[in-house]
């Protein structure tokens, strides 16, 4: 019975019109964006505007997510998708399902972006993510289920954003929702209490997962195992030190980690730029010499060939 409802809600065909019971707003389904433990998300048309609509037969769980989105609305700036509407849908045969509507965040997956634009963006995104986390943490919340699937890059200009706030938990409570690979409890490196260090652990795993598309499982001595994995990724070399500190719970707050990352990132770009420009100058300095040598060789070769024929 329950299974049937799940199937119906995760297979709503494009063109289906969903009308709210309380606020009477109408949404026309364009396509499905994804399905999760709590419900399915659809791209919808709402009077010409593109929005994302999440619908579920688990009214209680959906309500909890709405609570989080409502609280995030009050945080300065845009943390997570903006909540637009909350309502119920009564189907033709009288069943009632809850849904909420949020801003549609259009973007591309983080891994795709890095593949296309190179790993120089890693530092930038890490910094952006830590900025958002810092603001979230300062308003008393922990993201919880931070993972690659929940992150998206909006282009022009590139900005990393999170799209699913289902795991967001008040500080000091037990983490509501998590994914094993990103969970420090699974790696036996800490509790599941909602603390800033919980998110920083998951953040590190996000950047590891980026370079290990096939997740790996826990072995004996998980800390050493994760350290080794970090060391093996060349693109993460500049950040090794701070990533290891995050994995081992050395940072109490995201502000601390952000500060150290900022230091690394600003130094990194300075040295690489000066090195590159020096190389360019070197090339310019050598250029006349190279042309000269090449010219002489060609003339010499010409004379040699001429002498062969004569």
């Amino acid at each position: 019975m329950k299974q049937k409802a799940m199937n119906l809600l995760s297979n709503l065909p494009p063109g289906t019109v969903i009308t709210g019971k309380w606020h009477h707003k109408t949404y026309r389904i364009k396509k499905k964006l994804g399905s999760g433990a709590v419900g399915s998300v659809y791209l919808c048309d709402a009077a010409g505007q593109e929005v994302a609509l999440k619908i579920s037969d688990k009214s209680a769980s959906l309500t909890v997510e709405v609570n989080v989105l409502t609280s995030l609305k009050q945080v300065q700036g845009s943390l997570g998708p903006y909540l637009l509407d909350v309502d119920d849908w009564v189907t033709r045969n009288g069943k009632v399902y809850s849904f909420y509507v949020m801003e549609y965040v259009r973007g591309i997956p983080l891994r795709t972006f890095i593949k296309q634009h190179g790993s120089s963006w890693i530092g930038v995104f890490m910094l952006q993510l830590l900025d958002d986390l810092t603001r979230l943490h300062q308003s008393g919340w922990i993201f919880g289920d931070l993972k690659l699937d929940n992150l998206i890059v909006m282009t022009n200009p590139p900005r990393l954003r999170w799209v699913d706030v289902g795991g967001t938990t008040q500080k000091g409570r037990a983490i509501k929702e998590y994914t094993e690979f990103y969970d420090r409890g699974y790696w036996q490196l800490g509790t599941r209490r909602a603390e800033e260090s919980y998110d920083l652990f998951a953040l590190t795993m996000v950047f590891l997962h980026l370079f290990y598309p096939n997740e790996f499982e826990r072995r004996e001595q998980p800390l050493q195992q994760l350290y080794r994995r970090i060391d093996q990724v060349k693109a993460l070399a500049p950040y090794r030190k701070i990533l290891k500190k995050a994995i081992s719970g050395k940072y109490q707050t995201s502000t601390e980690m952000r500060r150290e990352l900022f230091h690394i990132v600003s130094q990194n770009t300075r040295t690489s730029r000066s090195r590159r420009s020096r190389k360019k100058q070197d090339n310019l300095r050598h250029a006349p010499f190279v042309i000269e040598t090449l010219g002489i060789t060609i003339i010499a070769l010409g004379y040699y060939l001429l002498s062969l024929f004569l």
């Binding site: 309380w22 009214s59 809850s98």
Partner: peptide, 21 residues
């Protein structure tokens, strides 16, 4: 729960969550 407006539902779920914690 379904007979209550979505806005008020939130407050009830907060109580449920709080008790669970």
């Amino acid at each position: 729960l379904e007979d209550i407006e979505p806005e008020k539902r939130g407050e009830i779920m907060e109580v449920v969550e709080d008790l669970g914690e």
